[in-house]
Simulated scan of single mutants.
Amino acid sequence: MPKVSVLMPCFNGVKYILKAIDSVLSQSFRDFELLIFDDQSTDGTFEIVSKLTDSRIKVFRNASNLGLVGNWNNAIEKSSGEYIHFLFQDDILLPGALESEVAALDANPKCSLCFSASCVIDSNGAIT
């Protein structure tokens, strides 16, 4: 069982999804699974992610479009980690993010949720 299940529900995310995936695979914390849930994308997202070969990645494609919340729920049901981290197809994790989150949760066993500050970037990667 991995410590963290990183759940990436996606729909038509071809433009940014590989950057999002790379930000997970580049984490200093390594005890995770990355589960990608394609919700019947029509832009080639599934075809791209299904070719990834990292053993920590599992790719699922819903039989029908479940919608946003349905896809999230499906992701949670298939996760096996002690902790869950949602990362959406157009977001990235900064270096050390999982390590910091796991340390915070492990140090505070009564805590059931943690989150961090975020930056909003435009399509060119500039912080807005």
Score class of each variant (00 low, 15 high):
H85F: 15
L18P: 08
S26I: 02
F32S: 04
K3W: 03
L105F: 09
I84D: 12
N62F: 07
S80N: 14
N74G: 05
K15G: 08
A63C: 14
S123L: 14
N65P: 13
S23H: 07
H85C: 15
P2E: 05
S50D: 05
F29N: 12
D54C: 01
L98G: 10
F29K: 11
M1T: 07
A63M: 15
R30Y: 01
K19G: 03
S55A: 12
L52F: 08
L25F: 07
P109A: 09
K58S: 07
D90A: 08
S55V: 12
N74F: 13
Y83N: 11
L66M: 08
L98N: 04
I84V: 09
N71T: 05
N73E: 14
S100W: 06
S26R: 03
L25V: 05
L87P: 07
N124C: 13
L87S: 03
I48T: 03
D31G: 07
F46L: 08
D54H: 12
K51T: 02
D31L: 13
M8E: 01
R56M: 07
F88C: 14
G67C: 06
I36Q: 10
A126C: 13
Q27C: 02
S116I: 05
G125H: 02
L87D: 07
P2F: 00
D38G: 10
S41G: 03
M8K: 01
S64P: 15
L105A: 13
F115Q: 12
C119L: 15
F115L: 13
S118H: 14
L105R: 04
T128P: 13
S41R: 04
K78A: 11
K51V: 01
Q27F: 08
R61T: 10
D90G: 06
I121Q: 10
I21Q: 04
E33P: 07
P109M: 07
Q89A: 13
D39K: 09
C10L: 11
I76H: 02
D122H: 10
C119A: 15
L7A: 05
F60H: 08
I121Y: 04
P9Q: 10
I121P: 11
P95E: 00
M1W: 05
F46C: 08
V49R: 00
I17S: 03
M1Q: 08
K58Y: 08
N108D: 07
K19Q: 05
P109Q: 02
A117N: 15
A103F: 04
E101T: 07
V24S: 09
E77D: 15
P9C: 12
E77P: 12
S100A: 13
C119Y: 14
N124S: 15
S28E: 02
G96K: 00
D90S: 10
G70T: 01
S123F: 03
V59Q: 03
Y16R: 06
F32L: 02
V102S: 01
E99D: 04
M1A: 12
V49P: 06
D39N: 05
P9R: 02
K15M: 05
L93K: 00
N62G: 13
C119V: 15
A117T: 14
S55E: 12
F115M: 13
L113R: 06
Q27S: 08
P2C: 08
G81V: 10
P9A: 09
D91C: 11
K15F: 11
N62R: 04
G81C: 04
R61F: 01
H85L: 15
N62L: 13
